[in-house]
Design a protein around this nucleic acid. Sequence first.
DNA 1: TATTGTTATACTCTATAACTATA
DNA 2: TATAGTTATAGAGTATAACAATA
Lengths: 143, 143
Amino acid sequence: MSTPRPDPLTFEVVDLIGSVVARYHEEYDRAAAQHSLTGAQARVLALLAIEPLPMRQVARTLKCEPSNVTGIVDRLEARGLVERRPDPADRRVKVAAMTVTGARTARLLRDSLGFAREPLAELSRAERTTLRDLLQRMVGEQQ
Amino acid sequence: MSTPRPDPLTFEVVDLIGSVVARYHEEYDRAAAQHSLTGAQARVLALLAIEPLPMRQVARTLKCEPSNVTGIVDRLEARGLVERRPDPADRRVKVAAMTVTGARTARLLRDSLGFAREPLAELSRAERTTLRDLLQRMVGEQQ
DNA sequence: TATTGTTATACTCTATAACTATA
DNA sequence: TATAGTTATAGAGTATAACAATA
């Protein structure tokens, strides 16, 4: 309700994180567009690159409604990047899994993400370690 | 074209940044929704909280097409949060500016953004300074 | 009855192209 | 003729509600 009165330093850090988020999105969307994918499609593809997942679980991971996943997977499937497989254990479930083409596209997508290289190249190994530890504590402790 | 072969440490940092980006969006969208705003509307409101801007410049800042801004400002204006003002110097220009209500909403929105407090509270002042300097170099050098 | 996935619907965001009014 | 803003259009993402198949 009342202003939490964060100190200027915290404000500065939050502001910088905002810039990082913006940069991250620009790069991500640009890389996705290079493969004619939207951001959402690229995210699902990257997710399924780790392991096949039931539709429901894709929705949970993306924190969106299951009905959205239907459409996104529809479009990925229409392009032959993903396929729906039955789950022998539960016939209600459909497992979204990458095709060989999808796996190749996911790999290209990851490689074309310059974000990994350019901004971090400025930092020394020791600095990157420090950054990792600080971010880990920011993200890890919480939740 | 070929895999840039980033070292595991860089991968780890990029992964963490991905987590930070996800967290940032969750918080931002949740805070915006508390005020019945979409993410895009909240971003424009936050932008105009700094200073009034011509429609064209809002589009440039958001890196989207000017036609999109028309709709977003339409919806903000319909709710009385923003208004279009004429530019005396150039009658083609419409300057988007916040109303008093809009300014209050923008302030509430900023305050309800827990992202500033919770994850950073874990870090000491010295650590936040280190984090700021590292992020500054990541974001600043590049562009 | 509960759950999985889908469909139907409506709204927002997005880009493209064509239009208007100014410059 | 060039620019600022808008309109028209179409595609995609999003949530909600209702539905079929299965558990």
